[in-house]
Design a protein around this nucleic acid. Structure first.
Lengths: 334, 334
DNA sequence: TTCTTTTATCAAAACGTTTTTATAATTTTA
DNA sequence: TAAAATTATAAAAACGTTTTGATAAAAGAA
């Protein structure tokens, strides 16, 4: 049995489909549909289990109440958390989210963007993988686009991210204040803006404190494997008194390596990390970290896209949210 | 500047929209569109950056190439991994996934299902929250529905899950074989089928080995908090020689508690857990666990829904995939 | 009473496709 | 050379809504 349509209701009630459409859309006041008609129509509609066809509506309406969300890796807790808040906000506002996992691959990202355009999504929230904003800029001429987490420097595309510079600067100072100078920083993907900003913050703190020469930067990937390998190498090699990992994934690898070397945190070596996933409360040793306001990021990104969709002017198109320190027991004062 | 339509191409080429539609859909052979016409049409279409409108197509076509995916918590690594594989498979097959995070709440789930129906999705993959299959059964009369991970016992709804019974049975025997008898099992949500099956497997192993009386079951939530609290209580109280946690989230809490009590794994206490998330490779101590075939689950669920969408008969509608043992160093033989 | 306004409704156009049916023009067959 | 078949295309219907523009009937005003 097929879905019922306005025509079906029309046949049963005797009213025209325009009257029915209006009655069901709560426009009876505007068009002076009689109370009697409204009641009859609603009753029959319920009887027939009528649900207005989304795609048919879409031909007549300017919007789809659908937003595309593109993230590099949905299984990464950081992006999963962002997705969660955005999906949740969407729910509350009658929107629906199409989630794309780009696997950090530019071609997948591009193909996905195109398929979202075809589907007439109202807007796109993206943690971009590409480092060329051109394609996204073109899209943003047609529909609203908001960048989250990762952004581009010289484009008009609005973004919401963490103040990565400030976070890294603060983290480094936590170590410096505890008299650590030989600090190893294990970084993620060197090309990503988030990594660049963190490195920038780290080096500035080292420089200002006069310990620039003792700063060490290693690695090139936001993965546990990278943290593991670089930590092992560094322990043999440059023997830092403290390690600053630029993500919680890197941290995991570092911890495993330190454990294999039977190094106690913070007795033998101090550690601080970017990110604060839910499981970090349960890590032992517990690691002091720089928490990104992930939930805020999701909510703000959603609100911004909604604002843009409704045609309102965005006054502050670029937002860097302040990170916060989560103090735990991984830093020893020398 | 608005999107271009078939009519625009018609005006520029002089061909009718039906000819254009056919030429662009590669049906020129079937309808004998001349090579000349096809070339001209394609050229103009490219010039105008024509993209067929998805919603208009949808009025004429039976399918939307869209699948709804409902999970209880997208930020849970287990569900995130499932979502990842499904999104990825969809990508490869020209489908798109609408992801809903039901937050394990029945009303959200129900509302979301309705909004998916309105949007004419081709099928639904769901890790159900509700324990009443009725609503889902009704939906499955209209469009294909596949359950993943969680399922119902007495319904015709097809499902893909892990053989939770077998997994728990195996895990328990790992402990029993190492001569542990006083085993604490910390469970998750008691109402969930997955938990029930695991408890069932645990108790059967204890029973068969003749140590039923030494089995202890505590807790009622798949959360780290639950693991933490129950472990602390049990250590004061019943002093098990081994703990079996029924999920990796519970495990995290348990580890924190054991660490606070300065208990060494496996010297002082043995541990085995269900689930094997990516971060477990980096936990120290490293915990022997029962890995669910998460990727397989996602792929199979997707393949099954595609098969159902294309109207093929499902020969084995209910599948329990075998879990596997990941041996690490958390069990000491007494 | 006649003209205007209001009320309650409907018919038809529009949205952008796909598909069905129709039809001139050409070529082949008998 | 007439009939049949093929070729290349177009016109129109359909999908299920929303919206625009009419229009009878009733009520109010002059």
């Amino acid at each position: 049995m097929k879905r019922s349509t306005l025509t079906d209701i029309s046949k049963q009630t005797g009213y025209s489909i325009s009257t029915i459409s209006r009655a069901l859309n709560g426009k009876s006041k505007d068009y002076r549909i009689s109370q009697e008609a409204v009641e009859k129509i609603i009753k029959v509609a319920e009887n027939l289990k009528f649900r207005s066809d989304f795609h048919a509506q879409n031909l007549c309406r300017p919007n789809t109440r659908t937003i595309g969300l593109l993230v590099p890796h949905i299984e990464n807790p950081f992006f999963a958390e962002i997705a969660k808040t955005i999906i949740h906000e969407a729910q509350k506002n009658g929107y629906i989210i199409i989630v794309i996992d780009t696997m950090d691959k530019v071609e997948i990202e591009k193909r996905a963007l195109e398929s979202l355009l075809v589907r007439n999504v109202d807007g796109i929230i993206i943690v971009p993988t590409t480092d060329d904003p051109l394609f996204l800029e073109k899209i943003s001429l047609k529909i609203p686009v908001v960048l989250a987490d990762r952004y581009f420097e010289q484009t008009p595309l609005p973004y919401i991210s963490t103040d990565n510079y400030q976070g890294a600067y603060t983290a480094t100072n936590l170590l410096l204040n505890a008299k650590h100078h030989r600090i190893l920083c294990i970084q993620g993907n060197r090309n990503s803006i988030t990594n660049k900003e963190r490195i920038h913050g780290f080096m500035d703190a080292m420089h200002i404190s006069g310990h620039e020469s003792e700063a060490m930067i290693r690695g090139n990937d936001f993965s546990a494997r990278n943290g593991y390998i670089e930590t092992k190498l560094a322990l043999k090699d440059i023997r830092p008194t403290a390690i600053f990992t630029l993500s919680s994934t890197i941290l995991l690898g570092t911890l495993k390596a330190l454990n294999e070397y039977k190094l106690n945190i913070p007795k033998d070596i101090s550690v601080v990390s970017f990110d604060n996933n839910s499981y970090m409360d349960y890590l032992s040793p517990s690691i002091t970290s720089i928490a990104q306001p992930v939930e805020q990021m999701g909510i703000r990104a959603f609100n911004m896209i909604i604002k843009m969709i409704s045609g309102k002017k965005i006054i502050h198109p670029d937002i860097l949210l302040p990170p916060s320190i989560v103090k735990r027991d991984s830093i020893r004062t020398i």
